[in-house]
Amino acid sequence: MKTLSILILFSLIASITHAIELDFCVGDVSLPRGPAGYACKDPAKVTTDDFVYTGFRGEKPTTNIFKNHLTLAFSNAYPALNGLGLSLARLDFAVGGVIPVHSHRTSEVLILAQGSIIAGFIDTNNTAYYKKLEVGDVMIFPEAMLHFQINVGKTPALAFVALNSANPALQITSSSLFAGNLPSELAQQMTLLSSREVMRMKKMFATS
């Protein structure tokens, strides 16, 4: 027990030391990303602009097959997030637009800024938790859960999300099945869809 206490104490000291070792670590995206993120940009070359992200400005096109537009402010696009354990995204929906079922390595919190959407997630017991959100509403999606958003209003919708990782990843289930190199035969077996439907989906995603 004494040994365990000492190990815990050293771990806490190490984490505190690491936390105050640097004020920030703006990522140098010209170098490969490692398991802990990007290497730090030379502090002498860091400016105020490194801490400002302007990618959420302006209108966004919503002309893809899902009638949405995702603007991702992950560490590769917003290097100041490197090492801070958070990232952001803007979600634009045309009328009838959806963010299809997807997952991240992290939890996510959403705030609706415009319109009306149904948002929800599905847990590992296949229970769906979903609700119609109005402007100003906030919803949390637990780590790794499959989740989605659908514009159910008569006008475009806009939401912003924050995730607790600088690189949370984004895996859209339908894209993973039909937009990649997974053979049609395997997709058919796993989804119980007909061969014709699998080919239709693959063709749809290939041209999107």
Rank of each mutant, 00 (worst) to 15 (best):
L12S: 08
F10M: 15
V161W: 02
K131I: 05
K67P: 10
A89D: 07
V161T: 15
A144Q: 14
A157W: 05
D49W: 03
P32S: 08
P100W: 06
E134P: 05
L170Q: 14
I122L: 03
N126D: 00
G96E: 11
S103I: 14
A144K: 13
A162W: 05
V52K: 04
N164V: 08
A206S: 10
Q114S: 09
P61A: 03
F178S: 14
F160H: 00
F74A: 03
N76D: 15
M1I: 15
P32E: 07
V98P: 03
A206Y: 08
T124H: 12
K45F: 05
G34A: 13
I140V: 13
I16Q: 04
R196V: 14
R200Q: 15
F178Y: 15
A187C: 08
I20Y: 09
L4N: 15
T124Q: 06
A119H: 05
G83T: 09
H69I: 08
G96L: 15
I6P: 02
E134I: 13
M139N: 01
R57V: 01
H69K: 10
L133Q: 00
V46Y: 02
K131C: 00
S208L: 12
S87D: 08
F178A: 13
L31R: 03
G97D: 03
T191R: 00
V26G: 09
Q149C: 03
E185R: 01
K132C: 02
R196E: 15
S195F: 04
L84I: 08
T3E: 14
D92E: 06
I140Q: 07
Q188I: 06
N181M: 11
V109R: 03
Y78I: 09
H102Q: 08
V198E: 00
K45R: 05
A73V: 05
E197H: 06
A128G: 04
D42A: 02
T71M: 01
L193K: 02
S30N: 11
Y78M: 10
S165T: 07
L193R: 06
S15F: 04
P32F: 10
E108D: 04
T62R: 10
L158I: 01
A39L: 12
L193S: 07
A187S: 12
F74I: 09
L133T: 00
M190E: 07
T127E: 07
Q189F: 06
A77V: 14
V138A: 02
D137C: 00
N82W: 09
K2Q: 09
G83P: 10
N126C: 00
E21W: 10
G34H: 13
P35A: 12
K67D: 11
S184C: 04
A19Q: 15
S15V: 07
A14P: 06
H102R: 06
